[in-house]
């Protein structure tokens, strides 16, 4: 564990808490893409399959449970909780996210480090997470303005993988044979997809107005 990875995990945890705060307290998911949340639930479900078979640390297991629990409960809230579901923008959240799942699965079957069930699904979760934000970014452009909590959620979600890239650079220089191109490229693509969001998000801070 290094400071970059810890910062990344805390940023990721913060993004989840901001979204849960928004949905649970003000009972609103306005501007939030259910499709991105569903993709993230699949990402965690396929990435943490080894949660019961390989124990890394209490921290690791605890965080996996937090991410699994929060992603599935957010999907549940947005789908089935009456008050929250009413604020869900179904007409605008139309990105064909299932079209992302199959190519990621095919790619994982073609490009992976080991051809085992767990490894292929783990690799699939990396590819899927890289593109999981697309429905949310498309919804963002359609709804023009978004509230601060949603903006902060997306900012933190994009930032966490950026911090992980620093963690991988650190591990590359400190651990002799830490070379994982698949993880690195997927993480880089994921972070780059947020580039224009980050641009407008920082403009907002400079301009002091809502995220356009």
């Amino acid at each position: 564990m290094n400071i970059f990875r810890l910062a990344g995990d805390m940023t990721h945890l913060a993004s989840v808490l901001v979204l849960l705060l928004k949905i649970h307290t003000i009972k609103s998911c306005a501007g939030v893409s259910l499709r991105t949340q569903e993709l993230y639930a699949i990402v965690f479900a396929t990435r943490y399959l080894d949660i019961f078979t390989s124990f890394v640390s209490v921290y690791n297991t605890f965080m996996k449970l937090v991410f699994l629990g929060s992603s599935f409960s957010i999907v549940w809230y947005m789908r089935y909780h009456k008050a929250v579901h009413r604020t869900y923008d179904r007409e605008q959240d139309t990105f064909r996210h299932w079209f992302l799942v199959l190519p990621c699965l095919v790619l994982a079957l073609l490009i992976h480090e080991k051809f085992t069930f767990l490894e292929v699904l783990w690799t699939f979760s990396l590819y899927l997470e890289a593109v999981a934000i697309l429905p949310q970014l498309v919804l963002l452009q359609r709804t023009r303005n978004i509230d601060n909590l949603t903006g902060q959620y997306i900012f933190l979600l994009g930032g966490y993988r950026g911090l992980y890239i620093l963690n991988w650079i650190y591990r590359y220089f400190t651990e002799p044979h830490f070379v994982h191109w698949i993880t690195w490229i997927a993480g880089l693509v994921q972070t780059l997809l947020y580039a224009d969001f980050f641009y407008y998000y920082f403009l907002r801070f400079i301009g002091g107005r809502g995220v356009e």
Partner: peptide, 10 residues
């Protein structure tokens, strides 16, 4: 094992 693989990451 655990040290060189990103599997110890989230």
């Amino acid at each position: 094992k655990g040290s060189d693989s990103p599997k110890d990451e989230l």
